[in-house]
């Protein structure tokens, strides 16, 4: 994606699916999905929890968590490499940045195939959970 091409796309379909609408500007979602700032402490706890799925693939500064993945970059320093808005788009829908990525889209319910009954129509994480995780990731500076 070229940074010159500033694209403003209001995802209007999102509200119809029970997701909050958000605006993509360039390679970022600059505004909070909830309108408020997330809680970094809760965000860290969410990442370390297996059910959030992050550490299946990623590793990072989580010495208490013995099982971490190595399919994806180390999360240390994420906040130095990316802005808050860039991190938010990465979580909401990483496939917009790299169509062949294996990183799941955490705030998307359309365009998926054979989703299991218990998960159908639900995003992997809620808007609040994403804001908490973003608030934590921006603190990871090296």
């Amino acid at each position: 994606m070229t940074s010159a091409a500033i694209l403003l796309a209001v995802v209007s379909a999102a509200s119809a699916q029970g997701l909050r609408p958000y605006a993509v500007v360039g390679d970022a979602v600059p505004d909070s999905l909830t309108g408020t700032r997330g809680d970094a402490t809760r965000g860290r706890a969410l990442i370390v929890e297996r059910t959030s799925t992050c550490i299946l693939c990623h590793n990072g500064p989580f010495p208490e968590q013995k099982s971490q993945g190595d399919l994806a970059p180390n999360l240390s320093g994420s906040g130095s490499r990316w802005s808050e808005g860039q991190l938010r788009l990465r979580l909401v829908d990483a496939s917009r940045l790299n169509a062949t990525t294996i990183m799941p889209s955490y705030y998307r319910v359309d365009g998926l195939n054979r989703v299991g009954r218990s998960w159908l129509g639900k995003p992997i994480l809620s808007a609040e959970q994403i804001e908490d995780i973003v608030a934590y990731l921006v603190t990871l500076r090296d």
């Binding site: 993945g69 799941p104 195939n113």
Partner: peptide, 22 residues
């Protein structure tokens, strides 16, 4: 497929030398 949108090949062809949560 699925909510995580992964195929078998994403893990077993492309990432078999890696670790998933350990």
């Amino acid at each position: 497929q699925g909510q995580l949108n992964l195929g078998c090949a994403n893990c077993h062809d492309d990432n078999w030398d890696k670790k998933l949560a350990g």
